[in-house]
Computed example of a mutant assay.
Amino acid sequence: MQHEKDTAIIDTGSTVRRWITYVAGIYILTLGLSLAIRAGIGISPQSSLTRTMTLVLPPLSQGTFNLILEVIMLILTFLISRRAFKARNLLSMVPALVLALLLDFNLMITESIHLEPYVANLVLLFFADAMLALGLFLMIRANLVLMPIDLFVNTIQQKTGRKWGNIKTVFDCTLLALSASIGLIFLGAPHFIREGTIINAILVGQYVKLYFYLHEKYTARKAAAPVVAEPVAE
């Protein structure tokens, strides 16, 4: 999650507050993911891969497959950069486990959502992406532990010197190709890859930018607010 971000957005408050923000961000993110799935018009590359796997191996939940993917990314990070790999990187599995549990929980509580009109599903996807981006924003603001996937992307960036955004794009396209291939091989056709996948790729980044902008405006307005002096007791 180490994007090209403005350091002014980072919360420098107490560790407890930052962890609360981080966990809240994970919950909001997984709720956004769940609603995007319920919209039924396409989801993000990572979600499309793990969602496709639930059709290939139905006994396992999407949260479980998401956790498996995170474990694979952590192993790859270790193999690519053994010398730079720190024991504390193993802590990234803690939020990954929390995310997996919350994703399954939110998929359960949104299971009854079935919208018929296409426009309604489109509106739901726009709202879901806004929530997903808000979750990302809160996690970035907390600035605590990287998820294994983001740790992997960061490691590739450090090894190659390429721009983080470009590497993330290649990574997402790879997951999308895997999702489509698995769908073709085991299910006869790709699943969960539609126009919503493209909308998600565009909207989430723009929403995050919007939250950064609103936070900067709020911070600037707060700093410019006049300080009211307390009355002096006689």
Rank of each mutant, 00 (worst) to 15 (best):
G161T: 05
V208I: 15
Y207P: 02
P58C: 02
M73H: 10
A233H: 13
L107P: 03
L203D: 01
L91P: 07
R82T: 07
R221I: 12
N166M: 13
M1Q: 12
L122H: 07
N166A: 13
V204D: 00
T174C: 15
W19L: 12
M1L: 12
T160D: 05
N106D: 09
T110A: 03
L125P: 02
S112E: 07
G32A: 10
E70H: 13
A223R: 14
H114K: 13
T197E: 01
E70M: 10
Q206F: 09
R162N: 12
I156M: 14
L175W: 03
S47E: 05
A233V: 13
Y218Q: 13
L57N: 11
H3I: 14
V16A: 12
T50A: 06
I72M: 14
L74R: 01
F127V: 14
A84W: 01
L184N: 07
Q62S: 07
D104G: 03
Q46F: 13
T110F: 10
L184H: 08
N143Q: 07
E195D: 04
I28M: 08
E195L: 08
V94G: 06
M139R: 08
I193G: 02
L76M: 13
Y207D: 00
L91R: 07
F78I: 09
L124H: 06
A120F: 12
R141M: 14
C173S: 13
T21K: 06
S14C: 09
L122Y: 13
T174Y: 14
M147W: 00
L31V: 10
P148F: 00
T174D: 09
A233F: 11
Y218W: 15
G63P: 00
L67R: 02
H114E: 15
L103E: 00
T197V: 04
S179C: 08
I43H: 01
L79C: 11
F171N: 02
A24K: 11
L55Q: 14
T12P: 00
R18A: 09
F212S: 12
R194K: 07
T160W: 03
L90P: 06
G135F: 03
A87P: 04
R38Q: 09
L29Y: 04
N166H: 12
G161V: 05
L79Q: 06
C173F: 14
T52E: 00
I80E: 00
S179T: 01
L29T: 02
T52N: 05
L57R: 10
Q158T: 09
A8R: 15
S47R: 01
R221C: 13
